[in-house]
């Protein structure tokens, strides 16, 4: 288990290096200068800017300087917001995104697991077909389409919810976060429901459930103690894709509902060609997702006794 963990961490670091390197050189390859309105700047100003951003040195040197800083968690200074470090920018923006993401995950998993179990226990009934349809539709409708439609009908047309998630003091409100949370949780609900249904069907059809029945255990205990318990364990693995989706979903949903989160910031930096911020956020996102997937994998090993021991013997 320890060896496996170390191996995984090494791969994770390698992956991050690849991402940082790719990010760096892609940004370098970009045509033109990163500074907007360059025509209006004097040559001295440009030179000064170049010096500030280390752009006067050879690319290789810049690369190693950049990587050295990244390793320390320093992503440089934003082009768009002068005098603000990208790290600072990320840290101030992460809060709203994290809140939105967690809310969506909690809401989505609760509904998804319930739906999945109901569908599996009533296999081939209307509950099953309904849940399956919802699940397929949920992974098919892009979250921003869903968000747009929710916003139009519930906020604009029927005025049940505020259009923007923040109040006049730029604070997130609970009611304001309701629609973005729902929009973001649709994917979570659908994937969890699908996965839970499949796992539950497989578990309920397994030999050990037949044996448990043969023991005379009640249906309730079979479902809860033997069924759901075992079906839930592999469902942990959907947390990985879920995190990815929450992240990409938040990029657009934060924009639609005006949530001052990291996703909104990232899209902004793309619109404004704010390269240090794009690079920094990209690396940060990658770090986050890779860590989540690593933690999920390790956690899975801890929770499932079969893997726990197999790993321990290695």
């Amino acid at each position: 288990m320890l060896r496996y963990t170390i191996q995984r961490v090494i791969y994770m670091i390698l992956t991050l290096i690849v991402i940082a390197t790719a990010t760096f050189f892609l940004m370098k390859l970009l045509p033109g200068s990163p500074f907007r309105n360059q025509e209006k700047l004097t040559p001295e100003q440009i030179q000064m800017l170049n010096k500030t951003y280390n752009l006067d040195k050879p690319v290789v040197e810049q690369y190693f300087a950049y990587m050295g800083k990244v390793a320390k968690g320093d992503f440089g200074v934003s082009f768009q917001f002068k005098n603000r470090s990208v790290t600072k920018l990320i840290s101030t923006r992460i809060g709203p995104s994290a809140q939105l993401g967690l809310q969506a995950i909690i809401l989505g998993t609760i509904i998804g697991i319930t739906l999945g179990i109901a569908a599996a226990l009533r296999h081939n009934s209307w509950i099953d077909y309904g849940a399956t349809m919802i699940a397929v539709a949920g992974v098919s409708i892009p979250s921003f389409v869903f968000a747009g439609l929710l916003q139009y009908f519930l906020s604009v047309k029927w005025q049940l919810f505020p259009v923007i998630a923040t109040n006049s003091e730029n604070q997130l409100t609970f009611i304001g976060l309701a629609l973005p949370t729902i929009a973001l949780s649709v994917f979570v609900t659908s994937t969890t429901a699908r996965y839970m249904r499949t796992e539950m069907l497989e578990v309920m059809g397994s030999d050990y459930i037949v044996l448990a029945k043969a023991k005379g255990i009640s249906y309730f205990n079979i479902v809860f103690k033997h069924g759901i318990r075992n079906a839930l364990i592999p469902v942990i693995t959907v947390i990985g894709p879920m995190a990815v989706n929450i992240m990409t979903g938040s990029l657009v949903i934060e924009r639609i509902f005006g949530i001052p989160g990291l996703g909104d910031q990232f899209v902004n930096s793309i619109y404004t060609n704010d390269y240090p911020t794009i690079m920094g956020t990209t690396i940060f996102y990658s770090f986050l997702l890779i860590s989540i997937i690593l933690i999920v994998d390790l956690l899975y090993g801890v929770i499932d006794p079969r893997i726990r021991v197999a790993g321990g013997n290695k």
């Binding site: 397994s206 030999d207 005379g216 255990i217 075992n230």
Partner: peptide
Amino acid sequence: QHVRGKDISMIFQDPMTSLNPT
């Protein structure tokens, strides 16, 4: 349910899959 396991019980073919792994 009160007959199964109490009055009549059963052993299955494949011991590898008939116990709950968790």
